[in-house]
Design a protein around this nucleic acid. Structure first.
Lengths: 157, 157
DNA sequence: TTTAATGCAAAAGATTTGCAACATG
DNA sequence: CATGTTGCAAATCTTTTGCATTAAA
């Protein structure tokens, strides 16, 4: 834990982000929480330590932590509820950049063997594999970005 | 497609739910859509056919369809954004009833082999298995519910 | 001292609800 | 005809934003 905080502080320095008491406490709270809390949960927990903390700071800080890559969100958040009319057993490829979610099929993945320890958590109804990455479209965008950066910085010295 | 509509209509009859033009069209739209649309997407598509359709009917109908089990949602929706401070490679068990999300670990699942066809979609950064079912707590609740139903309906004739 | 982060209040966005009019069984 | 469903408008709930104040580098 101490190590995670230290490396977090270091990362903030690297990125030129200020290390505030709020950020440290919010970071500690989300790392220690094992229940995937939402912003309001954390806000209530933290208010005991930081009585002046505001909810919008919690939101802002969580997205900062997410952008730094030191926490993640459940589901591809920051989006509205999306619905799926595909009832056949399928899996998802989700683009980390644009949220595009494509179905794919795999008999092998359909019959995944899961650890026995799961029986302790409850009974299993479906298993589903979510693969995250960068979709073709976004790869192209990034590629073009790099190209234009190169040419604007001037290649001929 | 025709078959899916017919069985949907039949299911509505079974459940005592009225089959309205709106429900049929919304059902068709979500089943045909391959892009996991949100309520607003569907609303705009459908407005062309049903100019008097309202957004709240789309929402209401989608949840009806979801409750009927003929569609699903992406992520455990109807919840606020939840954050995850666990950076180690892990997987999730999600309760279909209460949304409880527990982490679990499995070396085997960490090194999952995915279909080659995925390369067409983009490049892969993480793979993550989501197992859905009913958690212990909810199983107990359902069990107690059944017990009390039995006794209130009177077992001794 | 310079710049970025916080807290507040207000705004914006997404989803839900009450209710009268309407359509379905 | 009785009841459930729709459309509208208003309400609610979640998340974001503008801005003056405060704290970090």
């Amino acid at each position: 834990m101490k190590i995670r905080i230290e490396s977090f502080v270091e990362l903030c320095h690297e990125k030129g982000i200020k290390v505030t008491q709020q950020r440290i406490e919010i970071f500690k709270a989300i790392v220690q929480a094992k229940d995937h809390p939402d912003a309001e949960n954390l806000f209530h927990k933290l208010r005991k330590k930081l009585p002046t903390l505001s909810l919008d700071t919690v939101y802002r800080t969580l997205w900062v932590l997410n952008d730094l890559g030191v926490i993640t969100t459940l589901g591809s958040s920051r989006e509205r509820t999306r619905f799926d009319g595909n009832l056949s057993h399928h899996h998802h490829f989700v683009c980390n950049r644009c949220g595009l979610t494509s179905d794919f099929y795999s008999d092998e993945l359909n019959s995944l063997k899961v650890p026995d320890s799961l029986a302790e958590l409850g009974n299993i109804e479906q298993t589903h594999v979510e693969i995250r990455g960068t979709c073709k479209t976004c790869i192209n965008k990034v590629f073009k970005q790099i190209q234009s950066d190169k040419s604007s910085k001037g290649s001929r010295s």
